[in-house]
Amino acid sequence: MEIPYTVRPRPDTGLANPKLGIWLFIASEVMLFGGLFAGYIFMRLGAEPWMWPHGWLNVPVGTFNTFVLIFSSVTVILSWEALKMRNFKAYKWWLFLTWVCGLLFLIIKLSYEWPNKFNHFGAYIKKEAAEKYEEYLGNEGEDGRLARGQAPRLFISGHPKAWSDVKDPSMDKIVLAAIDDENHTPKSAENDRAHFIPRDMVHLHEGHEVVLDKKDLVNGFGPFYPRLNTYLACYFMITGLHGLHVLGGVIVFIFFWGPGSKLYKTNPEQLCNRIEVAGLFWHLVDLIWIFVFPIFYLL
């Protein structure tokens, strides 16, 4: 038994089965990420301006990752074109580059970007206690944020002296051994538009010991986990799901680069179709990232 039109297109529809299949899958993926982005829109509109962080992610690294992904999108096309021209060697090389780029993207994400959030500490100060920490928030006074018509900043971030203070419920104080730029010089003009300052998260102002009273904090304080705030929840969820798609693509490409490429000897046309279909999926992954990058890193 043979399923018709697995390689050659059906004359009246002009399509081969896998191509229609992958487009339908892409349509469902669009709806999947559509749902997630709808969630993002809801969360962002619902948040008070000062609750929605800006500049927490490293823009140069993110930009580099964007380049990596776009580059891999080009190489997968080149690989497919090479296969169409029956240039197997070029096909192998371009496909190799494609999955290496995919892997590089994942490595940057998992070894630098994500872990970098976990050793950082952040806490929202309750409104009634804001005065106590005014030195680090910079809301009051002639040159304060309120006087300049800006939303108050109620967030302090840095590195705690001992993480056990954070976790232990019997400890009522948290001591920050180092704080971030915007709490170090809260009234500087640079920190006015927190929103467009790419801030290197590892670079902290050492020696600025700040004692935070736990009862002054909104209960969601802690490392930059999804629990700390909804921005991070959106970030981890959407980049996580996107990362799973990248991983899937990388596995598929490694397969077609390795054992799967044997098909070239028996049916190059079918291999060509498979690369086209896998490529379409890979472009979708790229396409999603094109939206993810600005909404989390830049805007």
Binding site: V59, F67, S73, V74, E81, M85, N87, F293, P294, L298
Partner: peptide
């Protein structure tokens, strides 16, 4: 081969350029 892939290369370069543009605009 080059003739076939030229449009893709052009689009690829455009994507790089617009990535830079979008980062720049955000400042």
């Amino acid at each position: 081969y080059l003739h076939h892939v030229r449009p893709y290369l052009i689009v690829g370069v455009a994507l790089f350029v617009f990535t830079v543009v979008t980062v720049g605009l955000s400042y």
